[in-house]
């Protein structure tokens, strides 16, 4: 199954990927590939491989676009969602999936994230959230917890962090969810639902960066960091069956907000239609 996936949906000539040992990004990339594969192979659905476009920005996460054997475009730092907006609007039948990082989508690209959410542009954004700028060597990002260390926060991070899924919800996203790398099956299902969702969807996937974030903050190796996810990140059903007191140090893995606002390109198609009708009159 796994090797099938690699042969079918990854650019095998370019593997192995460039991420560090223990990095969570490979897991998220696999989750995305599995989600797309399951959608394509589902006889009830009408998903074609050629209709998927993978868009990424800059950073560790964004190298994933190159490894996935789809139409893929690796853009500039922070601008993946804006490029994706152009692609989706130009050809609304495409399934445009943005692979981005916590810095890429909530710092340098934060403006594009909130506005794509507000417009309800039919994109699926997968944030590879590892709490750090990995590509440049471990600087604090907008999701680095307060007090944690980074190469640019040698005395502890003074900033307060973003919760990316809540940020998207606040900006009006019609679908915002959280996944992680420990709960792979749940995360694959969330990504599938995000792609199936007509409007803007965001999945904030908690990754791990043992090399920079983990080591600097004494979080242990990749296995230790995964154990933390297992203990602190809880899938929906179990989360809601927990007593309130147990939830205090836990976070929900699942869909956080959902609604069926009209999708942007559908709405614009109506504008075109009304202009054409006027022309005919």
């Amino acid at each position: 199954m796994a090797s099938d996936l690699v042969h079918l949906y990854m650019r095998i000539d370019h593997l192995p990927q460039m991420w560090c040992p223990g990095c969570g990004n490979g897991v998220i990339m696999r989750d995305v590939a599995v989600a797309i594969q399951e959608l394509i192979e589902d006889p009830e659905l009408d998903f074609n491989r050629e209709d998927f476009v993978i868009v990424s920005g800059i950073g560790c996460s964004s190298r994933a676009a190159g490894y996935l054997d789809f139409n893929s475009i690796h853009t500039t730092h922070g601008r993946a969602i804006a490029f994706a907006t152009g692609i989706k609007f130009a050809n609304p039948k495409l399934h445009v999936v943005v692979l981005t990082g916590d810095g890429d989508c909530s710092a340098i690209g934060g403006n594009h994230l909130i506005h794509a959410a507000r417009r309800n542009m039919g994109l699926t954004v997968i944030a590879f959230n590892n709490d750090i700028y990995g590509m440049t060597g471990g600087q604090y990002s907008p999701t680095t917890p307060n007090g944690d260390k980074a190469t640019t926060a040698p005395y502890g991070n003074v900033d307060r962090p973003f919760d990316i899924a809540n940020l998207a919800t606040g900006a009006g996203a019609s679908f915002a969810a959280r996944g992680d790398i420990y709960h792979a099956r749940e995360t694959i299902d969330i990504i599938k639902q995000a792609i199936l969702h007509k409007g803007f969807s965001l999945v904030d996937v908690y990754s791990v960066c043992p090399t920079y974030y983990g080591r600097k903050n004494k979080k242990g190796d990749a296995v230790e960091m995964l154990k933390w996810q297992k203990e602190h990140l809880v899938p929906t059903a179990r989360y809601y069956s927990m007593p309130e007191s147990e939830r205090a140090d836990k976070k929900l893995i699942g869909i956080l907000s959902y609604n069926d606002y009209p999708e942007y390109t559908d709405e614009y198609a109506k504008v075109i239609e009304s202009c054409r009708k006027k022309d005919k009159k």
Partner: peptide, 18 residues
């Protein structure tokens, strides 16, 4: 778009899409 950074990015995306 929300700014000029986004404007040219969307233009490039649309052009790539044909």
């Amino acid at each position: 778009m929300e700014d000029e950074l986004a404007s040219i990015a969307a233009v490039l995306g649309a052009s790539a899409a044909g």
